[in-house]
Design a protein around this nucleic acid. Structure first.
Lengths: 141, 141
DNA sequence: CCGCATCCGCCTAGATACTG
DNA sequence: CAGTATCTAGGCGGATGCGG
């Protein structure tokens, strides 16, 4: 048990393995949901790519963030990093089977969003048009 | 089209509605994946709760973050906020039908994590035990 | 030349303290 | 009880350096 959340849940009598699952779920969702991971996985879903190609395809990403994202994904075993000792150097990134299965799972959410995007957009419009409309104090994403 | 990403994708000839979907998907995933949203939705899935009850059940969350998270979810039409003009004030939060359907979609990812958590943990251990092990430069989550 | 790691600076997320 | 104002640590982008 590592986190405050974990101890809290444990004190409330939640089963340990369930607690572990909840932590890991949040952890993995945080990874998937962060600013660049989803796009990177999506781009890699169409095939292996080298660093520079990814840097172009993921559009607004900085080299630093691409590097970090790829290392995190590699650490989780979702992506493989293959360096070819050539001149000039070439490094290829590809989804592992695990990465592809995650990509498939994410597709579920993607489809949910596709199905309900109009609802969400409408709800946001409606909310923002309301009297108070505290959009200023909303999280930035 | 609002974002840099959007214009980039558009310049690369990606269909506009597809671009919009990609943006919104990332947007919603960022919301679901952020530090507190998933837990909040999960807790609310078992029934309506008032602010303080949520503050206790979500464990480590601060009032400010709970406030922001709930407002964002309300804006997206995933949660309803009902204020009863009493003394002392009482505010109840509940999942909307849309929120419940999202909750169901998220369950897909949760199940993926459950199925593969051992793989991920093992991969991380293995990675961290490797020679270089640049865990220092990983994103914090 | 390509793939990074490092340093620097802004700016936002998040914890702490306060108000209607 | 249900939030908002204040402060700080750290995420993130840009520039630079360097090994291969």
């Amino acid at each position: 048990m590592t986190s405050f959340l974990g101890t809290e849940l444990a004190q409330r009598g939640v089963a340990p393995d369930c607690v572990q699952t909840i932590e890991l779920v949040r952890d993995v969702l945080a990874r998937v949901g962060d600013k660049w991971t989803l796009l990177t996985i999506t781009v890699l879903a169409s095939g292996p790519l080298r660093f520079t190609a990814l840097h172009e395809q993921v559009a607004g990403i900085s080299q630093r963030m691409l590097s970090q994202t790829l290392r995190a994904l590699t650490r989780d075993g979702l992506v493989t990093r293959t360096a070819y000792p050539e001149v000039p150097p070439r490094v290829e990134y590809a989804l592992t089977p695990l990465g592809r299965s995650l990509s498939a799972a994410v597709d579920g959410l993607v489809h949910w969003v596709r199905s309900h995007q109009s609802d969400i957009v409408r709800n946001r419009d409606e909310f923002d048009r309301a009297p108070g409309a505290n959009t200023a104090t909303l999280p930035r994403l």
